[in-house]
Amino acid sequence: MNAPLLQNLRPYLSRLSLADAALWLAGALPLAFLLSLMLVLFSLSPAKADDVKCTGENLLVAMQRDDPAALDKVRAEAAKTPNGKGIFWKIEKEGVKPSWLLGTMHVTDPRVLTMPEGAREAAAEADIIVIESDEILDEKKAGAALLMHPELTMFTDGKTVKDHLTPEQVTELDEGLKQRGLSLATVARMKPWILASFVALPACEISRKAAGASFLDKQIAEDAIKAGKPVAGLETLVEQLKAMADLPVDFHFRALIETMALGDKMEDVIETMTEIYLSGEIGMTMPMLEAVTPSGADKDDSAYAAFERRIVQDRNVVMAEGSLPHLEKGNAFIAVGALHLPGAEGLVELLRKDGYTLTAVGG
């Protein structure tokens, strides 16, 4: 990577690790929903959505301008990823009606909510909608379930996040939360993966959630309910949070600290991920993150491997197994996080191994 590009990126990407960025995209459904829930439970009130504008810039544009060879490398690596192109797939098997698979991004960005061509129509005509967790439709029920497992969202040993951070890091976290209209005193007992959702998402995304906007998965489910269509879940929120909790707490605190270090520049990372998603080139996500991570950045490969196994691959298997009863009946519309789709152990490949033909629809 050449000097001009590094000079542009280093101030805010020097401490970003591949695992931390992937953590948000792949594990964000429970966090996206919990963020909305916490805003209600704690009466938190960030600025109104109309007052907060999204300002992130696509880092790939800078790469194209300053180091096109690096961008070529990203594209070459992406090309090696099985099923890395396409977020909308047709699922077919002889003897049953076709079903559909949509990779989602758990945000309220209007561009994402538009959905790829044909997806909205497929969802409207499907007999059932299947999402990661149908509990996102009932905040009271979800809240009650989480209250039965407070250890998944809160410190229950009398400690707070302040006991795990240096005074400087506490100050940094406090400032990051204040920028989003939040108080550290209010959320100090929350686990680091919950706090990370507050500081990782751009302020514009948080304000949209506070104003009641639904992220894509929830919008799809809400539309189904309005149409009198059944909605099924592949996991429970408790199961999703247990997957997060299974990772070492030190890993989560490191992710939180590094996310704080990005500050407002996290908007650039999210914007880049969003534009990759909208292009359908989801296989570019990981190579892009590696490209913008300076070679000297401190990355824990073992921690990332544990994350990928527990948060992505293990859940891919659960999702594939849970999808089969619906696929056997046909005409199902399945929507899960986009990073669960590509790869040799991704959902697309797992369903093929179960005897289904999957074809990417459009770009």
Rank of each mutant, 00 (worst) to 15 (best):
R189Q: 11
K226M: 05
I220A: 03
S43R: 14
P46H: 04
A19W: 15
N83S: 06
I136W: 00
T171E: 11
M288H: 11
A344W: 05
E222R: 01
V74W: 03
K229Y: 03
S183Q: 09
D298R: 10
A243K: 06
T259Y: 05
A188Y: 03
H252D: 08
W100L: 02
M288T: 15
E321V: 07
P325Q: 07
S14A: 15
K178Q: 13
Q169T: 11
F333G: 08
M63C: 13
V52M: 08
V336F: 07
K93W: 10
A297G: 04
G181P: 13
G212Y: 09
L9G: 14
F33C: 02
E222C: 01
L34H: 00
L41H: 02
T55W: 07
T186F: 10
G362Q: 09
L347Y: 02
S17K: 11
L347K: 07
P30N: 01
L216V: 06
F42S: 02
S45G: 12
H149A: 02
L59G: 03
A297L: 06
T259Q: 11
V130P: 01
V187Q: 04
L234A: 03
K226N: 12
M244P: 00
E57D: 13
A78I: 03
A79H: 04
F215M: 07
L16Y: 07
A124W: 06
L327P: 08
G56C: 09
L34R: 00
R75C: 12
D67P: 03
E94G: 12
F88S: 02
K191M: 11
L177K: 04
I220D: 04
A22G: 10
H164G: 04
M190Y: 08
